[in-house]
Every structure is written in C-alpha cells, then in structure tokens.
Computed example of a mutant assay.
Amino acid sequence: MRLERLKTIIEAYGAHAARWPEAEREAALALAQTQPQAQAWLEDARQLDAMMDAVKATDLARAEADQPVFEAAVERFAADFAQSRKMPTNVVAFPVQPARRQWHGGVPWPVVGGIGIAAAACLAGAIFGVNLSLMSLSDVRATNVLEQVAMIDGGN
C-alpha cells in the first residue's frame, strides 16, 4: 500500500480501522504503524471523529427546547432582511404595469384572438373549397352533356 492511499482511506473513513475497507485494512494498519506521517494523520482523524461524535450526541430534548428560540431568530432575521430590502430614497421607482386581463381559465386575450382568427380561416377555407368542388362538378356535368350532344349529332 502506498502512503497516498492510506491518507485517502483515513480522510474518507476516519481513524477507526473497523470502518476501513476490509480488503485494504491489514496493509493500511501495517503502514500506519511504521510511518510517523500516517500516525499524525490518524491523530488528526481521531480528533475530528471525536468532534463528530460530540455533535451526534446532542440531546434531542435540548434541540426541541431550542426550537422556539430558533424560530424567533429566523423571524427576526426575515424582518431585518425585509427592512434592508426597502427602496432607497435616491432611486426613482417606476410603476409596475398591471397584469393584462385574462380570459376565463387564465388564457390571455391575444391567444383567444389568434384562436378566433384561425377558426374563421378554417371555416372560410371549408366553404371556399366546397364551392370550388361544386363549380368543378358542374363543369364536368356540362362537359358530359356537350359530349353526349356531340355524339348524338355525330350519329346522324
């Protein structure tokens, strides 16, 4: 095992060898016993582990007792923050445009107008298309009548 790998293990898992990866544990312990730098890293890790254990040991009842104090501090902070965000006196405030009126369901009027125009265009296209097809149908009928007349006249 290399010294850099031991340092990585100590930083990741702490000073307790029981937390270290099992496959590397024996080699890491052997290296830690022979290297003074590794022993210094272990001492630092032990101190950090002790601090973390102390934080974990915080009494839940104490935390619950401190909850109202914490909430009051948060409210006080929020009030101070809101007051600090007020408009300075040397800045001109521009009026904010009111929101545009909206149609039922929150759809803006321009969208409603666009839908109306599209519906009118579809209706006009359908009517115009039907008229064109009727006119072409009457042209076909007239052509058929003329052909039949020509056949009758040609037969005499």
Rank of each mutant, 00 (worst) to 15 (best):
E147A: 15
W109D: 01
W103G: 10
E24T: 15
I117L: 13
T89M: 09
A78G: 07
E64D: 13
A57V: 00
A54Y: 08
A121T: 12
Q33W: 05
A118R: 09
D59H: 02
A79F: 10
F70W: 11
L137V: 04
R2C: 05
D44M: 07
R141C: 04
A72Y: 12
I117K: 04
I115E: 10
A38W: 11
F77N: 13
A124T: 09
V145Q: 06
T58N: 13
V112S: 03
P88Q: 06
V92R: 14
A150Y: 02
E147T: 07
A28T: 01
V140K: 14
R19A: 15
L134Q: 10
A73H: 14
L146Q: 13
E26T: 09
E11P: 00
P98M: 13
V55A: 15
P110C: 00
G105N: 10
L29T: 03
Q97M: 08
L134W: 15
Q97V: 04
R19D: 06
D59L: 02
A57E: 10
V91T: 01
E26Y: 02
A126N: 08
E64M: 13
V69S: 09
V149S: 12
G114F: 03
A45N: 03
D59E: 08
D153G: 03
M1P: 15
E11D: 12
I9L: 09
T143I: 12
Q33R: 07
I152C: 02
R62Q: 08
F128A: 15
A78N: 14
A18D: 11
G105D: 01
G129E: 08
A121D: 08
E71H: 06
W41S: 10
T89E: 09
P21M: 00
Q33V: 05
Q47E: 15
A17N: 00
P95D: 11
H104T: 10
A78E: 04
G106N: 01
A79M: 03
G154A: 01
D80I: 02
R141Y: 06
Q35P: 00
V91A: 00
A121F: 07
A82I: 01
I115A: 12
N90E: 03
L123E: 06
C122Q: 03
I10C: 01
R62V: 07
L134D: 08
R62G: 10
N156C: 01
